[in-house]
Design a binder for these strands. Sequence first.
DNA 1: TAGTGTGCCGTTTTT
DNA 2: CGGCACACTA
Length: 684
Amino acid sequence: MLNLNLDQLNPEQRQATTHIDGPLLILAGAGSGKTRVITTRIAYLIQRGIKPESILAVSFTNKAATEMKERVAGVTGPKLAKQVYLSTFHSLGADILRRDIDALGYKKPFAILDQGDQNAIIRDALKEFRLDPKIVDPGRILSIISKAKMGFCEPKDLPELRHDPLTQYAQKIDGFYKKALKGLNAVDFDDLICLPVHIFEQHEKIRQKYAKKFQYVMVDEYQDTNMLQLLFLNHLVKDHQNLCVVGDDDQSIYGFRGAVAENILEFERQFEGTVMVKLEQNYRSTNLILDAANAVIANNEVRKDKALWSAAGDGEKLRYIECDDDREEAEYVAAEIERYKLDYDLDYSDFAILYRVNPQSRVFEEALRTYSIPYTVLGGQEFFDRKEVKDFVAYLRACANPNDEVSIRRIVNVPPRGIGPTLLERISEFAHVNKWTFRRALNELARDPSRVEGIGHKVSDKLSDLVDMLDDFGDRFEAAEQDPTVRLAELGRDVLKRTHMINHILSTEKNPRIARRRVDNVEEILSSLAYYQDRSGGTLQKFLTRIALDRSDMNDKSEEQKGVKLMTLHSSKGLEFPCVFLVGMEEEYLPHIRSMNNPQDLSEERRLAYVGITRAKRHLTLTSAATRMRYGKAEDREPSRFLAEIPPETIDIQRAGDAQSLADQREAQNQKYLSALKAQIFKS
DNA sequence: TAGTGTGCCGTTTTT
DNA sequence: CGGCACACTA
Ligand SMILES: Nc1ncnc2c1ncn2[C@@H]1O[C@H](COP(=O)(O)OP(=O)(O)OP(=O)(O)O)[C@@H](O)[C@H]1O
């Protein structure tokens, strides 16, 4: 019935897979089949008669969750796989809150704030306390508040920040921030996990409901979990202890997000009777790649030593290519992709370009475009941080949920309707004294503007136009939920028209290129809405929830799968590619300039290098540039210190700047390309 | 309140 | 280079 074959596992993997009850820890190096064990184990449990809906598998990213779902479906078939609860911590938390947030005195539905929204609230707080945002950086305050939540404590209790002068401000602002969120009936990302924990603590019945439902719990990438997530898990599993976690301390790269490697290192002590399984055979990479990775990570002092080996043979040596500048680097990589593709009969989708920070993708995108190589950039949330994108999404949210005060406040003066900060404040006050929602206050003012000082006919006309529009589209979107023939994207386009947002963009942005781009961004929301509706048949509500929780992959998947993948080292975790380019191997990128000063951060950078190297199955090229255009100026760069940690016998060093060799390669490449073309023509 | 200009500053990494 | 916060004017 099930397509489950345990012969595809080595003895240790099999032991882990067939372990059913009680805590299980799988601690193993990269590419040793940890994720495979999780997916196979899910299938095995189902085969043993365990109900799929009582299995919870949590992973870290939406991408990993989707991939796991597919892998499970491959073994059990899609019908059973669908019933397994497989998602990220944050989606699970959001689901719990959707059902039970009223237990904490919030209303349903609640709003999920993004970083921009959070930032605005911190800025409000700074104003309230008369603090200068130049001295008290809102971003850092936010990160302290977030760290506190992830440690399930208050800012002042954070040991590592005890002496940070910002911490006392954060402590003060924390209270304001929490109240503000509750007042807005909104939660931030950390709350998606934090509030469920509160619910579990305060309402034993609710806790039991979930603990009973999820009889078997599995967590991938456990080294990236934080204190809060451990608490959360413990509430779910403390009755039955059926928790299986999988991870690798060498791949712990989310320290900045509160991840504590202790979770995995202390697991055996925290969960009595833990069975531990180590996996030592790597099935992903050839040995030279593995040797290089092992040598690099061995420079970290604090780690559990692992003996990774591969039966795949030595394979090809790594290559380090030193380029003169960033454009040469990008062009070199593009040319090499073509060459490898022909030499090894690879597909574009077999290639990945990995880098440390998102903006590094740009140069490569340009080069790939000029070479007509298809590609996709994964991750990077700048798209959703664009003003025009946030504005339009806020309109959609305001239509879908009249109580979404954050969104309504955002769009009430976009395009300008004569409501500046002072009027906005007065309207809030007006709502507050009458115990109305912000939206209700707007409705009243649309009818009777005299109730708030400073609102004239012009403003109130526009206001009534706005509330009419929100009502109208709210109804239409709601009606669309019953009628699948309604095109959500068309409705969305009508919203765009009715609000004149496009005109607003075109008239405020005088640089036509940028104006165009902004309009395109708004259009992209519409096309992803259309795509979403076609694929999942969901409602606007669901679409909005989805983009709040998962801001990646809103494009056509089949298109995406075809091309070369560009992504940060962080997003590459858990993935594998036959041919990897690790680009920008320079000091200040890797290690990143902000992580060069203390040894702990530096170790995490090294782990990042380790993650990057171990993504490669067969071909790995590292590149650096001697000079790089940054902020419109050329900057000198030094090769990364981690390059020196790679054993010389595993790597070949070349200069791309060697014009001769580059020209030769191009020539050879052209030849090959021509003959391949010829062969194809003759075949058909 | 809207619209323009100036000057600053940067870029981790993600849910 | 490009985006953003702030200040100043109409
Ligand atoms: N017993 C096995 N026989 C053959 N191939 C295997 C076996 N176990 C795992 N693999 C393959 O090895 C590769 C790595 O597996 P997987 O992604 O599960 O490793 P991982 O430990 O999760 O890696 P990482 O820590 O880097 O995320 C995959 O291509 C998988 O199919």
